[in-house]
Design a protein around this nucleic acid. Sequence first.
DNA 1: CTGAAAGCGCTTACAG
DNA 2: CTGAAAGCGCTTACAG
Lengths: 350, 350
Amino acid sequence: MKGIRQLAEHLQISTGTVSRALNGKADVNAETRRRVLEAAETLGYVPNQAGRSLRQGRSRTIGLMLSHDSMVGGASDTFFPLVINGLQEALSVHSLDLILLLCQRGEAPDDFLRRMVAQRIVDAMVISSTRLEDPRFPFLNKAGMPFVSLGRSHSATADNRWVDLDFEGIAERAVERLYQHGHRKIAVAAPDTDVQLAELFLDGYRRGLAHCGLDYDPDLVFRAEAHEQGGYAVGQRIIGLRNRPTAILLNAEMMSVGLYRSFGEAGLQPGRDLAIIAERESPVGRFLLPRLTCFRLDPIAVGQMLGKMLLSQLPAFADLYSDVPTTKIWPMELVEGESDPPPEKQSGLL
Amino acid sequence: MKGIRQLAEHLQISTGTVSRALNGKADVNAETRRRVLEAAETLGYVPNQAGRSLRQGRSRTIGLMLSHDSMVGGASDTFFPLVINGLQEALSVHSLDLILLLCQRGEAPDDFLRRMVAQRIVDAMVISSTRLEDPRFPFLNKAGMPFVSLGRSHSATADNRWVDLDFEGIAERAVERLYQHGHRKIAVAAPDTDVQLAELFLDGYRRGLAHCGLDYDPDLVFRAEAHEQGGYAVGQRIIGLRNRPTAILLNAEMMSVGLYRSFGEAGLQPGRDLAIIAERESPVGRFLLPRLTCFRLDPIAVGQMLGKMLLSQLPAFADLYSDVPTTKIWPMELVEGESDPPPEKQSGLL
DNA sequence: CTGAAAGCGCTTACAG
DNA sequence: CTGAAAGCGCTTACAG
């Protein structure tokens, strides 16, 4: 089956009527519609997207921009795929397709986005891996391309919609929990890039220290990349200290794998010799020994929220989603593992 | 800048000439071309894809179909992102864009593919996660959509192009290596789905046993899902045996995380109490203790090969890629870790 | 309720 | 070397 014209000829009616029948317009005879839908099904007719897009001025396709880093980093394990699932669920309600646009390693994210937007392949965008200052916000605002963002940025305006994880909150609570377990020398590891989440995590860390009456010591802040190698490097630096911290917060769970190894190599035991709380639950963390204490959230729900926020930005659906919040800091729940044993267990192990 | 018409009016020339200039046609005055390119750059004009696609009958976009599973499984760590990078590199030579089409959890892959093909959003497809019998092959063949596949299938015809990893070869070599280290009771863990790679891995395993004069024992074949939880389950089953294997091959490296934990919980030591060789190098495997012995390949090169194979399938580029092989079983190289110590070290540890 | 016709933005034979 | 014109496949006001 080639096009709507062939389908119309086969049915002996006009292409206009076929189009109206297929698109669920009200003013089509019930029997006509039945015949059209049946013939389309039988002959496997699906409208050519280019024709539709050109005529309608929109593509019914939403783009999710992913950077190479966001996939290779620890977030790739289950987080992004599940967020994407939630997104697709929310969008599929209105027959909107989601396509993933992967910015190549080395390609400037801003140029990439500019090209995608100019080509008008997508009607709206979801962006992620936001930075403190992120030119994609003003660019999309200026281009008039509806978008939502997974992640905050100073560059976001009051009109922009985003969902972000409560990095501040979990860092604060993690410090307080460790304090209650008797720790007084609590370190933190965060990426050294200008990714927004690192700063928020450090803010929460400082706030937690303040609540507990502990002094902030810049020597306890370890800058490292958010993966296994980064965690290994942090571990080695800690092991080399004369006066080691007794606990650490990791803002990326994959760091724990490297941190565990560095301790194991040195004959030290994670959990006993260094209490560890990491940012996000992951399959790997669940099967480390000791099991990682971390924070949990429902990535599918995050995706659904992002999808609804996006729909509220699209003229065609805005009315249906007027009650969707404009921004959301996503709460996370502590999952108790074995990597930050309370004091009684600590002494038991010692 | 809206369309080519506005750009043409601004330059006081026809849209045809503007189009020819932008598309690098030979028969355009050099000075005219310069003016057009400059104006397009200044005004930020990029052709509307829908218009181009409709007129040309092709979109210059290639689709990579990913299933939810292929992202959530261990392969998401660095393998797929790097393959994608290689693909993009190969395609970008000819200004072809790659978009990722993610089949939702629960959506039938065949329906999904059918819809994507019918919509004509992409000119060609890359498919992955092939199965023993995979209806996507006959479907794409029948639809006349050029494609390549990452993975073999019985459903592939002689005309179809694919790249696959040498699962058979590595399983065989792993058995032989373990035999040389003194192991006589060698187990294997493979997924219980009909993913092609599982069968190939088991074939290689059997071949390795035969070479070494060892009997095949179906009780040493552990079916488990290709992730941490699956590896944990395998570990527990092995620990419960009266007569344990002394070595195991894993066809998914993420299984090792769970396997390590199950052994650790039981007071056993992976490597010493069970030699382990896993299918693919990964950041996690590098930082496990003991470090995982596994097989390495260059995922970027795999992606580049897939890209070239695909280009050889496209009429516009076939001539340039006539020397590209039609199929390729990708060799992998052993990376010595600490999880399958040779006999002398084994006794040293005991 | 249906048909005839216009036109979305682009590229490309064709004429000059 | 350039312009005028056709037409890719679709949807949608408009007329009836």
